[in-house]
Design a protein around this nucleic acid. Structure first.
Lengths: 110, 110
DNA sequence: GCTATAAATAGACAACCATCTATAAACCAA
DNA sequence: TTGGTTTATAGATGGTTGTCTATTTATAGC
């Protein structure tokens, strides 16, 4: 995933009718798609508000009423775009927000 | 579309395991889904960089290499979540960015 | 009215995605 | 090694979505 995101203005054409590079648009799109799901938004909010700002997957199935594989699927999507970090401690895997990545999204819309 | 968006932190549970309200998550998701498409990102960038910051649909088909109905479809999606404003002047319809709505997204990730 | 141009709609189709059940893999403790 | 717990993977399924062609609607000028 390309981390060097650009503001829309930066990507826009100078004066010709040349659009934002497709590859760049797809990079940004992939990141935004990961957030643009109601369940994943709920997951992110739960992690952010948890003690020490981290949760294990098993803490999420109950409140969200979803199966364990579904939660696992969503966490994988979030990790793929580096919106969450995962850390194994024994049997559990603890997920936390990647705040730098989070801020990159804010910058896109600044 | 609900304009009273909340930061993730605001939506998160107090101390119970109660997640962000589903309806709220779906509202935010709908807004983000509209932006989370590479073609629509390109459209937004084109509009933002156009003279007077507005474009008609016919100006977009060429640079993006897509059919007129496809462009029309995307512009409709963007208008549904109020990310673009449309104004008819004669035969043409001019699209411009809704900057207030744009900023609301930035606030979500602030 | 007739014609030309711009935009929207309808319908079809392929690709993607969120969810489930069933199963496997990883890890810890006896 | 056996058993228990947590997470990941495989496969299936129904719903969503981006794109197209064909058609219709809206507007302007003659």
């Amino acid at each position: 995933m390309n981390k060097n995101l650009l503001t829309l203005a930066d990507c826009a054409p100078a004066s010709t009718a040349e659009p934002m590079a497709r590859a760049k648009a797809e990079d940004i799109s992939a990141l935004l798609k990961a957030v643009a799901d109601p369940t994943r938004l709920q997951i992110l909010a739960l992690i952010a508000k948890a003690d020490l700002q981290e949760s294990c997957a098993c803490d999420l199935t109950g409140p969200l009423g979803l199966s364990q594989p579904t939660i696992s699927h969503h966490l994988k999507k979030l990790a793929e775009v580096e919106l969450v970090k995962k850390q194994r401690r024994g049997t559990w895997i603890w997920y936390s927000l990647n705040k730098a990545r989070w801020s990159q999204i804010a910058q896109l819309f600044a």
